[in-house]
């Protein structure tokens, strides 16, 4: 078994680990760092439940080996809220529109939507559907998720006018 030492930043905290080459990033996050919010839904890159931000860019953590993330900065669902008590605007909007049911796809959906809102605060419905198009949800039919992202964008536009910018 080939073991590799890695150092990576996850949700602003630096972690070191010794990982077998074959350990996927999603397994490392879940089992090594106990960040179980990121879910493994298919392990072959289709469902998107394992989406994370790698250096700010959304991708599948089941299609990366942990060793490949050495030196990278990762954001998982646990890193979206501003603090242990609060919710981000996006998370709160998901709650407001009930954009989830079983909650299994939700972390990946939030990551995909977060990436979208980092690039635009005026997404069209089509852009929202495109942004979450690689994330399957079996509960919601996507409607309340699209609503949530629109609501979050609205709120963030309002906040930006009022306060000069807040994070999604």
């Amino acid at each position: 078994m080939s073991l590799h030492e890695i150092t990576l930043t996850v949700n602003s905290a630096v972690h070191r680990g010794l990982v077998p080459a074959r350990l996927s990033l999603v397994d490392f996050l879940r089992e090594g760092l106990l960040l179980t919010g990121t879910h493994a839904g298919c392990e072959h890159g289709v469902c998107g439940a394992c989406s994370i931000l790698l250096d700010g860019v959304p991708m599948r953590s089941c299609l990366l080996f942990a060793v490949q993330a050495d030196g990278c900065a990762i954001t998982t669902v646990e890193g979206l809220a501003p603090g242990p008590e609060g919710l981000s605007v996006l998370q709160d909007s998901f709650w407001e529109t009930h954009a989830l049911q079983c909650g299994f796809c939700t972390p990946g959906m939030l990551i995909a939507a977060q990436a979208l809102l980092q690039s635009t605060l005026t997404p069209s419905d089509e852009e929202i559907r495109e942004a979450i198009g690689g994330n399957l949800c079996r509960c919601t039919g996507y409607k309340q998720i699209v609503d949530a992202v629109k609501l979050a964008a609205d709120r963030l536009r309002g906040s930006n006018r009022a306060e000069g910018g807040v994070q999604p």
Binding site: G45, S51, M59, R60, L64, A112, E130, A131, G134
Partner: peptide, 9 residues
């Protein structure tokens, strides 16, 4: 090609 997330990688 795929979708946004797979194109990112």
């Amino acid at each position: 090609v795929g979708h946004g997330q797979t194109r990112n990688r």
